[in-house]
Amino acid sequence: MRNISSLLFSGGLAFLLLVLATQLPFGHTSMLLGNDILQAAPDEVGTGNIVAAVLLAYRGIDTLGELAILFTAAASVGLILGQRSNHSAKRDKTITESHFITSRASDLMMPLLIIVGFYIIFYGHLTPGGGFQGGVILAIAFFLPVLTRPGTTIDHGMITIIEGLAGAGFIMIGLWAMLYGKPFLQPFFDTFLGNGIFGSLWSAGTLPLLYLAVGLKVGAELAGLLVTISEAPAAEVERT
């Protein structure tokens, strides 16, 4: 009965949304705001990547909010899983070491992944990419050894400190502008950086620093989340 009613509900919702979709002007999207930003961003913010300008400058506080959502989700998962693994922290010794090829490949991959991750973060304001994407790659770089060598653990304290400082760094850069009498998160203020030369690494004011903070935070958050989940005792889940 419950299945049927939920099927009816989802079917009805899908139908309504489809009807709605036919009403929307496809291909004639109203680019009211988009056009303005496309025209203004290269001069006003000085980024080669307009997405970065929207993400960090025009809608910087949204990005801060999204970082906070990620942080909250990780903290909540930590609250649910972390405490359980504390009193059953003894790791299962029966898991065998992975094969030669896997472990050596992961050793080889790790430095490369770190370089790629940081490259994507640092050039986020010039090329497609940025803190979120680069951060995910960094997280994978540090999670790979945990996957291939089941015995290894990542220092949770280190992760907590990195994610705390990176998040605080983002906000501090925003508050720094306020010290100069500018609004919160304004990327340009006197005596610091300025617009720079369009297309060079040191351009677009504080945007590269903001992206670095985003990248480190996302990386630490995701690595912490993955490690917490992988450390959660599987046996206990099976029992319940």
Binding site: L64, G164, A168
Partner: peptide, 16 residues
């Protein structure tokens, strides 16, 4: 809005 966010980010690190 900003200060509580800052505090939330720093608290776990501070608690160490």
């Amino acid at each position: 809005v900003i200060l509580p966010l800052l505090a939330a980010f720093l608290m776990p690190a501070m608690a160490r």
